[in-house]
Design a protein around this nucleic acid. Sequence first.
DNA 1: TATTTTTTACCCACTTTAACCCACCGCTGG
DNA 2: CCAGCGGTGGGTTAAAGTGGGTAAAAAATA
Lengths: 149, 149
Amino acid sequence: MSSFKGSFHYTVDNKGRINIPAKMRKNLSPEANNSFVVTRGFESCIFVYPNDEWAKRELELGKLQQTKPQDRFFTRMLLQYATDTELDGQYRIVLSKDLIQYANIQSEVFILGAFDRIEVWNPEEYKKYLDAQQEDYLTVASRVFENKE
Amino acid sequence: MSSFKGSFHYTVDNKGRINIPAKMRKNLSPEANNSFVVTRGFESCIFVYPNDEWAKRELELGKLQQTKPQDRFFTRMLLQYATDTELDGQYRIVLSKDLIQYANIQSEVFILGAFDRIEVWNPEEYKKYLDAQQEDYLTVASRVFENKE
DNA sequence: TATTTTTTACCCACTTTAACCCACCGCTGG
DNA sequence: CCAGCGGTGGGTTAAAGTGGGTAAAAAATA
């Protein structure tokens, strides 16, 4: 299983490509096979899942009943923005125009390792996100960690 | 097994043909054999099932109780509009006039990967559909993303 | 049944897009 | 100080998407 950490400031070229940081590449599991599923994130960022991690999300999707209107809605929401991608010869992936627009990305990106996925942000959007949080890191951390069994 | 994802804006030509997006073709299983069953969708869209996935729908139909009025109705709805189709030399399929009318399709289509099937929408109808939904992406996503194995 | 008309399938052709390759430069570690 | 890796940029070519013509098949009409 992959486990991504750290953050990086990189550029998007005019073809919509971003480099996957070398440190993250090293954490890719062989099963991921240099393939990713890119989709919209929560908040205004892009989620990049290695193939093997995304497969787990799909397992959940498979349990849905496509005869139920709500489940069809779920399926559509989750898959509409999802795309398969592979690393090119220079270890880059292409971000679709839809996603770039959704995450409000210009020429620079903030790439964040988030455990099972890689997140791609407009640096300013990430700053806004941080500012919008009411509680500081210490408060949140203590609550998150206390609830473990 | 196929798993379609992503969305695309394509055109219908005046012969009623649409291209099957290359990214979706790559997800076709060999058993599907470039053959599809096209039928009316739930909501106002067209469902395009690869042959192997359609076979599963037929299995489900077989389990229905044809003595129940509801089950008979469902069977008829699904089968009345169903047609077999194959990709032509340019990887396109033909949509029947009945279906085009049912989905209220003009010159442009929104093609959506929805796990086991491909959906074909009038872009405006899809927008209307989204607007009518009560829940947003975040609520929906939490369902699928929270269940770690 | 023969003939005409319409529809459908199968080519061929054009335009745009994106995959792939090559090349550069700066930093880092030996 | 040099070599190699990591990050960035761009050009070329094959693929993807779109449109239309023609011949065979089907349907309609006489």
